[in-house]
Amino acid sequence: MRRTISADTYVALVLLLACAAVLNNLLSADLSGPYASPATLPVAATVVLIVLSFFLLAGSLRRAAPPSEPGLSRAAKLRVVALFVATALFIAAMAQLGYVLASIVFMIAAGLIFGNRNPVSLLGAAVVAPVALFFFFEKVMLVFLPASRLFG
């Protein structure tokens, strides 16, 4: 029978790699303090995390992975990736396009990713929410949101 590798195995390996990086950073830094240094707690937490990761790894290797369930469809995975990319682009675009314009574009994109095909609610939410938030923060809360660099 083909032996499969469970997700827990990968997670444990990623955790062990991260712990190695953290330990390397902590032990190579010159951290000192009376009786307990700034490195004491993080080093202790990292050591505990390494032990727990080995528990996770041992548990996942000891037991065979259950039969593969029907996973996410390709379209579902694409929607998650698309939403992540749209959000990252929106954050980057806020300073260039300005808060309101970038938000309107993002709201339309996110609405489409979530499956909203109704033009009235899609455009309505895309315009009303950013404008309302802009006025609330800039006029009521007196907190400034990013202005457009491209359009002055």
């Binding site: 959000t87 993002f106 609405g111 499956g115 923060f137």
Partner: peptide, 23 residues
């Protein structure tokens, strides 16, 4: 959900930005 979650995301991004003022 198609209306609500984009608004939640916008609120989240705006909220973190106005709290920390840091992209």
């Amino acid at each position: 959900k198609g209306v609500l979650f984009p608004i939640i995301l916008l609120l989240a991004i705006t909220g973190v930005y106005v709290t920390t003022n840091n992209v």
